[in-house]
Design a protein around this nucleic acid. Structure first.
Length: 465
DNA sequence: AAACAGTGCGCG
DNA sequence: AAAGCGCGCACTGTTT
């Protein structure tokens, strides 16, 4: 067993050098804004905390814990809600088997106190991990996060001090609060390029499922939309963007990573209310499902078969068709790959890394895909930076987020930069790695001149849809 | 005071 | 048969 091939070694070596330059470049931070944002957020936190103390629940909390009462203690709150006040508890912690204090479990009480508490917690997270974290790591207006390559089991990269790869983006308010701090250099744009469906494309290079390849090759096909149709019993034109999003994140990706229908049914069902899903003709999704004979989620009990007519039972069939009809070849690959790993105790990725150790089934089939998809990005970043250096460009690469590259690009170099990117991703990478059997595409997002990372918007240049 | 385990949450 | 992959960071509560 060879643990690493020469090309794999070279990739890590050159990758480390390229990322060292990225670290040295650093990211410009608006420290004045950060100071104001921290102050403003602190005021909100103070106000919200004070407000919580007027609730009856807080009085019970105080009675139970006295001087030890701590609004920051999830454990205390969960104990008050689920043990003292006896609200039905849907989940428990893994090791200690105490009532869980995560957002979903707390929210299930539907208490106003809890809603305000969660809002407070979001702000606290934004302030401590992000606003203060960024400020702490910034000197002379620049922050230099690390991008190590030698910590992750799957041979992905990571980021630390601070982690540049988990800056808020999904919650618009928190995203704005934090990402406004990231600004370009004078006369530059923040510009991000993002591999489209990197892990899905990469998986196809392993399993070569013809249906998956078709989805990737034909821009008029859309697997998330198709699955949304099956999951929610909709016609193509009824599927809104948000419905597609729910199908993609709560079913398709979850299934690819190894989740199953009972979990997916829950998150899909809860997602309907949380995302306020409606068909494009304005019909609330739960009403639509009711009209089609599905009016309940079902128990989703691990030990029980789903009840006929429930959403859970429906999703069981969708899952079956997903793996045994639609992506049958992928399914078979997973089985074969797992068998081979059990036989040998290791496997080799398409990029030349051997992965050994005690892996479970999901890890064994996910690692090669996750690792190799990142290696596409890393290889591209190395090429891109070398070319930028050769041309002595003013533009800089300032970060990497698994399948995207964040650049601080001079206004006079945008076209040039994008042309280099295009050549690498649309041409060179497939010449370098002959096993890439699907076309690779990237999306481009850019903020207006001088504007923050928060203000990035998609730039349509190479994609036709 | 420092270290540790456990939990939760931000991202891909 | 089992039942979501990979990270980093902050915080609580306990132990050293």
């Amino acid at each position: 067993m060879k643990t690493i091939t020469n090309p794999a070694y070279k990739l890590m070596h050159e990758g480390s050098i390229a990322l060292a330059q990225v670290e040295a470049n650093g990211i410009r931070i608006d420290t004045k804004y950060l100071d104001i944002a921290i102050r403003r957020t602190s005021n909100k936190i103070k106000h919200l905390s004070e407000n919580l103390t007027h609730y009856k629940i807080y009085k019970r909390w105080k009675k139970k814990y006295g001087a030890k009462t701590n609004l920051g203690s999830h454990e205390q709150l969960a104990h008050i809600l689920f043990t003292v006040m006896d609200y039905p508890c849907e989940s428990f912690t893994k090791k200690e088997h105490k009532p869980a204090a995560d957002e979903a479990n707390l929210k299930s009480t539907k208490l106003k106190f809890v809603a305000e508490y969660l809002e407070l917690e979001k702000l606290k997270k934004a302030r401590s991990t992000y606003l203060r974290g960024i400020l702490r790591e910034t000197t002379d207006g620049y922050m230099h996060p690390n991008f190590p390559l030698h910590f992750v089991q799957s041979y992905r990269g990571s980021s630390r001090n601070p982690n540049f790869q988990n800056m808020p983006v999904r919650n618009p308010k928190i995203a704005k609060l934090v990402r406004q701090a990231f600004i370009p250099r004078e006369n530059h744009h923040i510009l991000e390029i993002d591999f489209k469906g990197a892990e899905i494309c990469c998986s196809a290079c392993y399993h070569e499922d013809p249906k998956m390849i078709k989805y990737i090759e034909n821009p008029r096909l859309d697997m998330h939309r198709d699955l949304a149709g099956e999951i929610y019993l909709l016609k193509k034109k009824q599927i809104s963007k948000m419905i597609r999003f729910a199908s993609k994140s709560f079913f398709v990706f979850a299934e690819f990573y190894g989740d199953w229908y009972k979990n997916c049914a829950k998150s899909l069902w809860e997602g309907i209310d949380e995302l306020n899903l409606k068909t494009t003709d304005g019909v609330p999704l739960k009403k639509h499902l009711r009209d089609n004979g599905i009016s309940e989620l079902g128990a989703c009990d691990v030990d029980k078969q789903p009840e006929v007519g429930t959403f859970e039972a429906h999703l069981k069939r969708v899952e079956y068709a997903f793996w045994n009809k639609r992506f049958r070849v992928y399914n078979q690959w997973k089985k074969d790959w797992w068998e081979a790993y059990q036989e040998k105790g290791y496997f080799e990725t398409l990029t030349g890394f051997t992965i050994a150790g005690n892996l479970d089934r999901k890890q064994a089939v996910n690692y090669p895909i996750q690792g190799s998809a990142f290696h596409w990005l890393l290889w591209s970043l190395i090429k891109l930076q070398k070319e930028m250096n050769r041309r002595k460009m003013k533009s800089l690469i300032i970060g990497q987020i698994h399948d995207s590259i964040v650049g601080d690009i001079h206004k006079s170099e945008i076209d040039e930069y994008l042309e280099i990117v295009r050549e690498i991703i649309y041409e060179k990478i497939r010449k370098h790695w002959k096993w890439i059997i699907v076309p690779l595409t990237v999306e481009v997002e850019m903020a207006p001149l001088g504007k923050s990372w928060y203000e990035k918007e998609e730039v349509k240049i190479w994609t036709k849809n």
